[in-house]
Simulated assay, not measured.
Amino acid sequence: MDLVVGAAPGNPQAWDALVDESPLPSPSLRSWWLEAWAERDAVRVVEVTDGGVLVGGLAVQVRRRHGLDRVELVGHPLAPDHCDVLALPGHEAAVTAAVAAWLGRGQSRIRLDGLRAGALLAGGAVPNTVTSVLDEAPFEPLTGDFADYLAARSRNFRKNVSRFRRRFDDDGVEHVTAGPADIDHHLLELRRLHGAARGADSSFLPYFDVFAAAARRGVQRGEVLLHAAVDRSGRVLAIEAVFEVAGRLSTYQSGRDVSVERGLDLSTVLLSRAIEAAVGRGCRELDMLRGAQTYKTSWAGRTRPVLTLHASSGAAGSAVERGVRSLRTTKRALTRAAGAVVSRPGPAAQG
């Protein structure tokens, strides 16, 4: 086995083929996503080859802080999900061992937020590993056509989708999907609409430029889609940005015109149209990605865990990690103690 480390996959087609064959193909592992982040951050794509053939690898960001390498999944600020070591079937153990050895070199702290359930990296190959559940990601199998998908939803949900879609059409609002020729226009509109709806609370906007760079690449592949609602005057009222990778539809970010009273209705229509189109293209799963917000349960009835892995290498890295874990444990204990004090009943009234 040989190890090659670069800023992007040496053979994007071979890398993406590994993503296709992975247990849970993730948009956050696609070559176009990694290439866009490499323009902003220190991306390290660790590729494992056997006889010159790519058999696996891992993509991470590495930042130097206070004399230590801080290792995270690529795109960490934008919450990558379902990531892990990629490996050809039959090569999982060898690839994981090679990647773990690379992670264990030098002085580093490792924080991988967004690993898939059952991740190879969670098996203890990385030194000083602590793995836990970070969040839940709602999902729904798409086993038939769009009518079958709707039939599995609640009666009230089906009624709302039907009513909103009818009003959408009656008002002359058009559903369009951005292509390579108009992707820049729709990206600008997504930035505007998302900013109007979320403002300073958005964790997406500070990294919008790198998302846009990835989207331009992804739309060329048909794997990034911006579904837009456009009124008769040509004004964009709402946008839903989604990924379609390896037969999986993943919802990602959205924006809507807050001055339009029916903004939430528009978002519902766009997402339903996105699902309908994806089913027509053969997608077999809807993934709402991490975050078990209440509204997601209307769209997807199942959940899978998203994991976080904390580890370290080297004496300095291990010492810092032990200190951080100790501080984390202390904070949890203090929080529990404060909660107990607040919930403890006061003394009985004297009378």
Rank of each mutant, 00 (worst) to 15 (best):
A98V: 01
A101D: 11
G106P: 09
G75W: 08
H66V: 05
A79S: 08
A59V: 08
A101W: 01
I110V: 15
L68H: 07
G90H: 06
A87N: 02
S108C: 12
R116G: 07
I110D: 11
P141A: 07
V130E: 15
S132A: 15
R70K: 09
E92D: 04
F139V: 10
N128E: 15
D81V: 06
D84S: 01
Q107M: 05
R116K: 10
P77D: 06
G123L: 11
I110W: 08
G56Y: 06
E136H: 14
L142R: 08
R111P: 00
P127R: 11
A79H: 08
D135S: 15
A98R: 10
G67N: 06
D148E: 14
G118R: 11
P89T: 01
A137C: 15
A119C: 13
P138R: 08
D81R: 00
V133A: 14
P89F: 04
V85L: 01
G118K: 10
D69M: 01
S108N: 11
H66R: 15
Q61R: 09
L121W: 11
E136C: 09
D69S: 09
A147C: 03
V60M: 10
V71D: 10
R63P: 00
A98F: 03
A119F: 10
P80G: 00
A59E: 10
D69R: 13
L120K: 05
H82R: 14
